[in-house]
């Protein structure tokens, strides 16, 4: 069963072809990596999937339902969550409130119950509190629950962003360079975390990453993008030995292998 299927997705800005005929089949419960040199169009693909950009042509299916031209908020409601290359948290909110925001679709109380302060409101809030704390605990952030998100250190902010994305109960998770700016030890922890999250939550993950070890460790299949085009795809060992890929990366990837 494919969780996310993309057919012939294209997008150009002015004269620049950012993405051309991009195809993807993301099976259930797997992690697929998306790599390529800077400016290859990786983040553009994420923006197209999540609806920030409107595609010029092509279709996106989530669980066989088309979501291509839906409104931004509707796309995420249908089960896609993402993180950002430059972290986008709700900085002036506490860590706990960041997570609680994700519960807005299943709050369990409506406007009238809120303004009257009925006990249903209080009970539902309590339930949201407890569940949010479970997410925080899972990501080891319990100690920071009353801290403003902006005061967390970089690695914790990354984890909080993933936690927040998960709290909205997605089926597909898009991770945009989660290991950016992390050191060796943090990267290894992150690899473990993503693998654990994928297993525990039964997610399908599409991962953009520059650090090759992360991709090779995590992904069963990898797609390589250059100048908006797919130049290779397959399992990690196939991809990294592909001459075209080596050419695209020349000088950038060699030391890693």
């Amino acid at each position: 069963m494919t969780a996310l299927k993309i057919e012939n997705l294209s997008k150009s800005f002015g004269g620049i072809q950012a993405v051309l005929n991009y195809n993807l089949e993301l099976p259930d419960n797997t992690i697929t990596g998306l790599i390529g040199p800077n400016g290859a169009g990786k983040t553009s693909i994420f923006n197209l999937i999540s609806g920030i950009y409107r595609p010029d042509s092509g279709q996106v299916f989530l669980n066989d339902k088309e979501i291509t031209h839906k409104a931004l908020s509707m796309i995420s409601r249908s089960g896609i969550a993402r993180t950002f290359q430059n972290i986008r948290l709700f900085n002036q909110m506490t860590v706990l409130d960041n997570i609680k925001t994700a519960f807005h679709r299943r709050a369990g109380y409506h406007f009238g119950e809120t303004i009257l302060g009925l006990s249903k409101f209080y009970l539902s809030e309590k339930k949201i509190d407890r569940e949010s704390m479970e997410y925080l605990n899972y990501f080891g952030l319990t100690g920071y629950k009353s801290e403003f998100a902006k005061n967390l250190c970089y690695g914790d902010q990354r984890r909080l962003e993933i936690a927040r994305a998960l709290a909205s109960e997605p089926k597909v998770l898009l991770l945009d360079e989660p290991a950016a700016g992390m050191n060796q030890v943090e990267v290894e922890e992150l690899i473990k975390l993503i693998r654990k999250v994928q297993k525990d939550f039964g997610l399908s993950i599409l991962l953009i990453e520059h650090q090759m070890p992360v991709v090779i460790e995590l992904c069963r299949s990898i797609q390589v993008l250059n100048f908006g085009r797919l130049i290779a795809s397959g399992n990690p060992s196939e991809v990294i030995s592909n001459p075209e890929v080596i050419q695209a990366y020349l000088g950038e990837m060699e030391p890693v292998i």
Binding site: S50, I52, L72, S73, M74, S76, R77, A81, R82, F84, R88, L89, F90, N91, Q92, M93, D97, K100, T101, A102, F103, H104, R105, A107, Y109, F111, T114, I115, L116, G117, F121, E125, I128, R164, S168
Partner: peptide, 25 residues
């Protein structure tokens, strides 16, 4: 009650990062 409910949290979320808020549905 409003500002300490889901409603109020959404408002602050929109203030803090409207794109991230929109992408949360």
């Amino acid at each position: 009650h409003l500002v300490n409910s889901n409603f109020g949290r959404l408002w602050v979320a929109i203030r803090e990062n409207s794109l991230a808020a929109e992408l949360m549905g």
